[in-house]
Structures are given as structure tokens and as C-alpha cells.
Design a protein around this nucleic acid. Structure first.
Length: 490
RNA sequence: GAGCCGUUAGCUCAGCUGGUAGAGCAUCUGACUUUUAAUCAGGUGGUCACAGGUUCGAUCCCUGUACGGCUCACCA
């Protein structure tokens, strides 16, 4: 950057001076014997200066440096924490000390020495030899306030991670969350699979896709908006329990809980219905909360959440009745339209009864669902891959679950009747033709798979980013995605 | 896409009805061999996001643009 030229220039000059001492500022390797955490662990009990000092080698980034003439203290930071080092001229030698004086905060160094405790009780490495492992020529943000500017934190996540340990912790927890879920599913004989990101026909959700083009095939391809239809093909093929952590892409707006690319766990279990999937869902998430927090009761922003199963189950119609005062069941589509419009729901006028119910839910219910809640039995019109309820074909065996007003997951008893599925596809295709940019096309190959026969199957999708937000108390999805989507800087 | 707010030194931030800028940290010089926001003394560092306008004069008022944040819309 132009503005930092002076400081960068100064550091480049130091780089040249270090080279003039015959030292390579970017060597190829170093072999630490201890991480900073290992030193704190292994030497926790030592007093002042031990009788039989043990030599350690530790490597990391210089974060602070306090020069005192002929000696100097510094803290170095590695992947696990920090350790103080104490560099004395009479210990390392006059010339190495001169070189060390050219080190800056931000430099990566390797230090060899013995561990002792300072007068003030801090565990410290008394350095016998210190080596530059990588010269930093761009200054770090200020040591006390760290890096605050949210724009720089997202654009330069590397700087954010160096300066803000709590950010690193969020992303470590994200990995732990994914690993916890993976372990639990594997333990239940689920098989992790990989399915296409580039799809000739997108489907499995209602969303606008990103479109790309394959030159050799001379064909448009879409980045997946979901992997649902591929995983169900695998159920047809005889994999009876499959899952995938799927990076999905939706060409839509961005806000605190939407990023154009996001991670969804989808899983499918043959012979299960949505009731079993509900139990699996609440167990998976409660157990994950326990692994991360040791409890199923956690705080998110201003809410105390309780993930302890069983979660509340409420049909969509009941939830609408409860929160809007409108009971859709006895009403005709026309009457429901009038009531909904009167209540302030924004409607175009051509909605079906089921679509109006879904609108009522969005308007009156969704934001009020704070504690984990299963909303079940959606209208068929908004659920093209779910099985009808045997006792009421206007509704389907489906649930979504909501936490803090956010939809976190979606599941159904999967539609496996190929004739019915074809009909639902045709309705979507008509919607697409009628201008609904989020409807999708008929997937003939998927229908062919269903025609071979798919066992009764329960399926589930969980928004991993949103789940991570909840379990790490982050307000924005950008705070749980390492590199959130941003406009170009210039 | 709309509304509101923000953008000042490398970083964190001040800046009064409009008189062309400050602090702390970082950095540089000097002193200092148990400091830890090291300390002490002295320096360097700015197209006040960008482009126009009003004004004798603009970081400040107005308009536009860029980027960001929040809210809403969109997104089952």
C-alpha cells in the first residue's frame, strides 16, 4: 500500500542489513522441539532457574519486543499461544545480537534456549541462539487495541487471525463442530460422500444459481444450490445412509445470515421418516453443543437457549394460528387471502392457499421462534420433494427448525413416488416459465433414478454456518466464514 | 434495491456554529542486562476515502461516487 511505504521501506532496509551480515532472512526450515503451549505445560512447575536446565527450540511470530540496551524481551506467538523470550547480548554473542536488533514485531523467528521463570514469575526462554525464519516487511496493527476495522478484518483475515485470538477460536470451534457431527454420523454408519459442485441441472432448493460454462463440453453448468438430488440418487444406488458437507452457492442477497457460498450438511437415511430425522436432528445438535460448551444450555446474544431434547414441535398451521390469530384451516383460499392481506401480509394475489400460509408464517412466526423449534407439516406447494401426509394431501411430511428467528435446517420424508415427483417437477417448470426465477427445471435423470425405486427415506439439511453462529455467539455469518464475500477494494 | 450511519498517520481514536490537523501505540535517534501497554529524552510520519460545489477560506456545509456497517426488501 502506498500509505505504508515508509514503514515498509524501513523494514526492507533492515532486510538488506541482515543480508549484509550473511544471514538468509527466508531460510527453508526450522525444527522446533516445543510449541509455546508445550513449554507452558512441561515447565509449569519450575522455579526461577532450574538446576538442570533443558534446552528447547520454539518458533513463532514476534508480537512484542522490549529492548533494554544489551538485553531484550519479546513475546512470540505460535499456533497455540505465546511464550516470552529473553535475549541477552552476552548469551547470544555480539554480532547475533546486532542482527536481532534488526528484528521487528511480525517477524517469524526460531529461538533455542533454556526455560526459566523471571523475577515476576513469567515462564521465559533464555535464548542461546535466535534465528530469523521470515522477515515481515509490513507492520502489524497496534498491539494494545489490535485490529478493529471490520472491513480490514474481513478482507485481510490473515491479519485478523494474527491479532485477534478470539477470532481464531471461533474458527477452531467451527472445525470442532463439523468434526463432532462427522464423528456422530460415522458412528451411526453414515458414509461421507462427494457429489458434483458443477451441475448441468440445478435443483433441490428454490434459489437463483450461479451459471458457468464448460468450454470442451460447450455447455452451461451451474454451481450447485443444493446436493439433495445427488445424495438421493445414492440412496437409490444402495448407499443407505449418506451425508456430505456441501459448499452450496446461491446467487442472491447478502446479509447477516446469507453469504453467496455457504456450507450445508445434507444427510439421507433409508427407511426413516421425518419423525426419526427430527430425533436425529435434536440429538446431533444437542450433542454438538455439549462437545463445544459442555452443556446444552448456551447464551446467544441476548438469549438463553436450551438445546436439550426434545424440542418443541409445532405444525406450521398451528404456529400461524398461534402468532397471527388467523386459522387457515377452515378458510377458502380467497378468504384466507383477504384475512392475510388485511393483516398486512404483502401478497400478489395469485397465491395458492398453501403459499399464503407460508407467507403468514414468514411474516408472523419465523422471527418469534427463539428456542429451538421444529415447524412441521408444510403446504405441499412450497415443498416439491416432500411426501404428502397420508391423512391430508394438501400438506407434507416436512419440518424446518428455527433458532433465534433463523431457519437452521430443513427436512422431509423424501418423496419417492416417481409419478408424483414428475408432477411436482412440472409445476416447478411452469412456475419457472411464469417468471419465478427461483423455480427449477425437470431433472429427467433424477426421475429415472426414482423409477428404479428409492426406499422410503428421511432427509435433512443443516446450515452449518448458522449453526456455528449460534454455537460461537457470533452475530453475523461473516464472522464464521474465514473469507466472506466482499466487493473488490478498488 | 431503499433508508440511516461511517471512512482523519501503519494501527486505535480525538478534532468545538468553517480559519488547511492532534493523541496513544508503532516507527526512527540516544540511554538502559529481569521487562511485560517497559521506562526516560528527542524526532519522522497526513491528497482528512474520491470527485465536484458553496465560501475570502472546507476534515467540517451541500451534491455525486466508491467501499463498509446497521435496518428493511429480496432470499421458502
Amino acid at each position: 500500500m502506498e500509505e505504508t511505504k515508509d514503514l515498509i521501506q524501513q523494514r526492507r532496509e533492515k532486510l538488506d542489513e541482515i543480508r549484509e551480515f550473511g544471514v538468509e532472512p527466508y531460510p527453508h526450515k526450522y525444527e522446533p522441539t516445543h510449541s509455546t503451549a508445550a513449554i507452558h505445560r512441561d515447565f509449569a512447575d519450575i522455579q526461577e532457574t532450574p538446576d538442570e536446565p533443558q534446552t528447547v527450540r520454539v518458533a513463532g511470530r514476534v508480537m512484542t519486543k522490549r529492548d533494554h540496551g544489551k538485553s531484550s524481551f519479546a513475546h512470540i506467538q505460535d499456533g497455540e499461544g505465546r511464550i516470552q523470550i529473553y535475549v541477552r547480548r552476552d548469551q547470544v554473542g555480539a554480532e547475533p545480537y546486532k542482527i536481532y536488533r534488526r528484528f521487528d514485531s511480525g517477524d517469524i523467528v526460531g529461538a533455542e534456549g533454556t526455560v526459566f521463570r523471571t523475577r515476576t514469575g513469567e515462564l521465559t526462554v533464555l535464548v542461546d541462539a535466535i534465528q530469523l525464519l521470515s522477515k515481515s516487511i509490513r507492520p502489524l496493527p497496534e498491539k494494545w487495541h489490535g485490529l478493529q476495522d471490520i472491513q480490514i478484518r474481513y478482507r485481510q483475515r490473515y491479519a485478523d487471525l494474527i491479532m485477534n485470538p478470539e477470532v481464531k477460536d471461533v474458527f477452531l470451534k467451527r472445525t470442532q463442530i463439523v468434526q463432532a457431527i462427522r464423528d456422530m454420523l460415522n458412528a451411526q454408519n453414515f458414509i461421507e460422500v462427494e457429489t458434483p459442485v458443477l451441475q448441468p441441472i440445478y435443483g433441490g432448493a428454490n434459489a437463483r444459481p450461479f451459471t458457468t460454462y464448460h468450454n470442451t463440453l460447450e455447455q452451461s453448468l451451474y454451481l450447485r444450490i443444493a446436493n439433495e438430488l445427488y445424495l438421493k440418487r445414492l440412496i437409490v444406488g444402495g448407499f443407505e445412509r449418506v451425508y456430505e458437507f456441501s459448499r452450496d452457492f446461491r446467487n442472491e442477497g447478502m446479509d447477516r445470515d446469507h453469504n453467496p457460498e455457504f456450507t450445508m450438511l445434507e444427510l439421507y437415511q433409508a427407511y426413516a421418516d421425518y419423525h426419526q430425522i427430527m430425533e436425529l436432528t435434536e440429538t446431533l445438535i444437542a450433542e454438538t453443543a455439549k462437545i463445544i460448551h459442555g452443556t446444552t444450555k448456551i447464551r446467544y446474544q441476548e438469549h438463553d437457549l436450551d438445546f436439550t431434547p426434545p424440542w418443541r414441535r409445532l405444525s406450521m398451521v398451528d404456529s400461524v394460528r398461534e402468532h397471527s390469530g388467523i386459522d387457515p384451516v377452515p378458510l377458502s383460499a380467497d378468504d384466507l387471502y383477504k384475512e392475510a392481506a388485511e393483516a398486512g401480509v404483502d401478497l400478489a394475489g395469485d397465491e395458492t392457499k398453501g403459499e399464503i400460509i407460508a407467507e403468514l408464517f414468514d411474516t408472523f412466526v419465523e422471527s418469534k421462534l427463539i428456542q429451538p423449534t421444529f415447524i412441521t407439516d408444510h403446504p405441499i406447494e412450497v415443498s416439491p420433494f416432500a411426501k404428502k401426509k397420508p391423512e391430508d394431501p394438501e400438506f407434507v411430511e416436512r419440518f424446518e427448525f428455527f433458532i433465534c428467528g433463523m431457519e437452521v435446517g430443513n427436512a422431509f420424508s423424501e418423496l419417492n413416488d416417481p409419478i408424483d415427483q414428475r408432477q411436482r417437477f412440472l409445476e416447478q417448470a411452469n412456475n419457472l416459465k411464469a417468471g419465478d426465477s427461483e423455480a427449477f427445471m425437470v431433472d429427467e435423470d433424477y426421475l429415472r433414478a426414482l423409477e428404479y425405486g428409492m426406499p422410503p427415506t428421511g432427509g435433512l439439511g443443516i446450515g452449518i454456518d448458522r449453526l456455528t453462529m449460534l454455537l460461537t455467539n457470533q452475530y453475523s455469518i461473516r464472522d464464521v466464514i474465514l473469507f466472506p464475500q466482499m466487493r473488490p477494494e478498488n
